[in-house]
Design a binder for these strands. Structure first.
Lengths: 340, 340
DNA sequence: ACTTGGCAGTCCCAGGGGCAGAGTGCCAAA
DNA sequence: TTTGGCACTCTGCCCCTGGGACTGCCAAGT
């Protein structure tokens, strides 16, 4: 069992190690922190912590370093989250407030979060949620190629191409456009996906095949967009903390370039609107990110749907600050998107 | 003056150094290449090359390494571009052919190019060029917030937000929508930017202010989109070639994260539809990329506009292969976008 | 005028020994 | 339970040395 003071020792080990990047020994602990006991006593506590696998020694005779499990305990039990300074909060508002559209909001969000935490920042685009169809556009790009555009009332716009269309002139196109818009306008996306299938039967027989192609394309758009996109910023920060990775940062960069991976990772994390979920080190091994930690929380987009926002960085990171930053940015983002 | 054989020596130095990452000496040259002369002779040639600053010695007594100037001569005079293998060409077609829309085409393009070259691949989105207005949509997102959507016949869709709108109900909105579409539909973007300004005067006086806001927003969209976006892939490759950079790769990653920088860089490069322009090392120092080289060429988008495509990597790269890959991918891309 | 073999000189790099420093583990005493 | 003390271990650093890899130059050969 780890004593009360033992946990306190763990806390300072984590804090000092994160700050200095150097294994911390019993002597430096008593020097830098007022424990009121001697180094030998701390050594006993450290032996306990090592027993519990909360800390480990990189070499037989050097200071100790927190293990993944140690960070876990630190995050779950020892972290107190202090609010951001007024200046920092101000900076978030100023920077995000200038955004002109959703793309811009998210781009600014991740940039600022990356700068605030010195880590890689990630934001998931909000899913359609209970958005509604605002308008459907069908554009002829070339004789045999069409593009369908789906606009929702949440401000999202998606495009999709269809190939191999034959013998469709502008009047016919215009009629199809009207038919789709009449049937779908104002419908919730979930319903629209169903309504869609019936539309081909309502048009003139010679256009049914094309209408079916269009319906399929729009259906794809709805489905494909449930699995959202990501924006990222601050990848360069990984290079700065390179020495925190055992080998090269190559595999890490490679993993985060694969958006699908990150979306799966986000998908496995709880959406918690208020708290910040933390995944540490080996918990992410399945994603090729066994030496990184991910902090994530949720934010609410205008459609009411919840999407994720977070940061990713080496296991050795300032969890406390980063959790606060993620939470603060997510809150402001929710507020901004609700048009406060 | 550098002799004929001297240039040949430069070529093998570049080739061997790129392949092995090790400074190459006179002895290894005569061993690996059939020059028919002795090492001492090669040494004399190398002395000449050093005189001309085409090669340099990292240490007093080690092999030689090409300088930026040496690479320049290599690229300009000594490179012969062999076509890609049939298999590689096949792979490009297969991979890009599956794309569903412009975003997807470019995403696949950079991915594949990154994989082909083992470098960072970049593609600029095509600018509007002589595209035309296909449709304009105006959406009320909230009581005081509007979004304008501009769709062009090249398949491009852009959104923009307007804030601080008051007292606009759905019928009024609908009327404005019609007014804008009637005036702009089918116009070339360049013309539309002008027509736009007259529209507010054609609507009912009480809506003029809103109409002016909308016109301004659409104007911004046209202007803002002249300066295009970029897609990128393969940033992880920089980590693999990390030892080619004197310090950390941090500044490089930082520079390429700044899209504006890369767009300026692309902007300074000649658009040459057939050849590949190469900028080497210090030539990019202004952009924080003094240790990287950039290869770029142009591709033609469906609207007829020319945008850029290229790769970026350490100065020590396989110029010959990469130039071929860039050119081949650009050509295929042009063909694909022209709906061959 | 080039080319060549030879040779001296220079510099890097890897390996080994030794030394100081940091830190632990354990023990016996308070 | 805490403490001081002490032996022990392991790293990191410095210095040195020897081998290896080149170059640069020179004088002789073609």
């Amino acid at each position: 069992m780890v004593s009360e003071r033992g946990l306190e020792v763990l806390r300072v080990i984590v804090q000092d190690y994160v700050a200095s990047r150097e294994p911390v020994g019993s002597k430096t602990i008593v020097e830098r922190h007022a424990f009121g006991v001697s180094a030998a006593t701390i050594r006993n506590d450290m032996a306990q912590l090592e027993e519990e696998e909360l800390i480990a020694a990189p070499h037989t005779s050097s200071g100790r370093v927190p293990t993944d499990k140690g960070y876990r305990v630190f995050v779950d039990q020892l972290t107190e989250l202090r609010p951001l300074s007024a200046g920092q909060r101000q900076a978030i508002e100023t920077f995000l407030g200038q955004a002109v559209d959703l793309d811009d909001v998210l781009a600014r969000t991740v940039r600022h979060l990356a700068q605030l935490t010195n880590q890689v920042a990630l934001a998931q685009y909000p899913s359609f949620g209970n958005a509604r169809v605002r308008h459907i556009e069908i554009v002829a790009l070339a004789p045999s190629r069409l593009m369908t555009v789906l606009i929702t009332d949440t401000g999202r716009v998606d495009q999709h191409l269809i190939d191999g269309i034959h013998g469709l002139d502008e009047p016919a196109l215009s009629q199809l456009r009207s038919a789709f818009n009449a049937a779908l306008d104002g419908q919730a996306l979930a319903d629209a996906a169903v309504t869609l299938r019936g539309i081909p039967d309502t048009v003139a027989p010679e256009r049914r095949s094309v209408a079916a192609d269009i319906a399929r394309s729009l259906g794809d758009q709805i489905a494909a967009n449930r699995q959202d996109r990501l924006v990222m910023a601050g990848a360069a920060n990984l290079a700065r903390t390179e020495s925190d990775f055992s080998g090269s940062i190559f595999p890490v960069l490679e993993a985060i370039e694969e958006q699908v991976t990150l979306l799966r990772l986000f998908g496995e994390m709880q959406i918690d609107e208020d708290g910040v979920e933390v995944r540490i080190g080996r918990e992410n091994a399945d994603f090729g990110l066994g030496e990184t930690s991910v902090l994530a929380t949720g934010y609410t987009a205008s459609g009411g749907s919840v999407a994720r926002l977070g940061v990713l960085g080496p296991t050795r990171m300032d969890y406390s600050n980063n959790m606060v930053a993620v939470r603060a940015v997510a809150r402001y983002l929710t507020r901004l998107l609700a048009e406060e």
